[in-house]
Simulated scan of single mutants.
Amino acid sequence: MRMFLFLFAVFFFLTPAKNEFFNERCNKLNGKCLTSCHKNEEIVGLCKKSKICCLDLQPCG
């Protein structure tokens, strides 16, 4: 029972830290956290709450 409580506490406190990591990564890429990307955007990462990080496609030059 103690092991279960310990693991619950560890996972409970790690989840917000992991989610903030994903949002910071998206911000560094100049992306936006959305539920779905538009036609002119591509998926470059994940965000919290089941959202994806979308970034505008760069035209070939």
Rank of each mutant, 00 (worst) to 15 (best):
G45W: 00
E20D: 12
P16T: 07
E24I: 10
F13A: 00
G61Q: 13
M3Q: 15
Q58K: 13
F4V: 04
L14G: 00
K51G: 02
K18F: 04
L5S: 07
L14H: 05
F21L: 13
K39H: 09
T35G: 11
N23R: 07
C37T: 14
N40W: 15
F22G: 00
F8V: 11
N23I: 02
A17E: 01
E24M: 12
I43W: 12
F8S: 13
L57M: 13
C37D: 06
C26Q: 05
T15H: 14
G61D: 08
H38D: 14
F21K: 07
F22V: 00
C26A: 07
C60P: 11
C26W: 02
D56A: 08
C53Y: 03
D56Y: 09
L46S: 01
K32R: 09
N19E: 03
L55Q: 15
V44T: 06
C37N: 04
P59Y: 06
K18I: 02
G31W: 03
R2T: 09
F11G: 11
M3E: 15
K28Y: 05
H38G: 13
L7M: 06
C47K: 02
K48D: 03
C60R: 12
H38Q: 15
L29E: 11
F12N: 10
A9E: 09
K51P: 06
M3K: 15
N19C: 02
N27T: 12
E20H: 10
F21T: 05
P16V: 02
K39W: 15
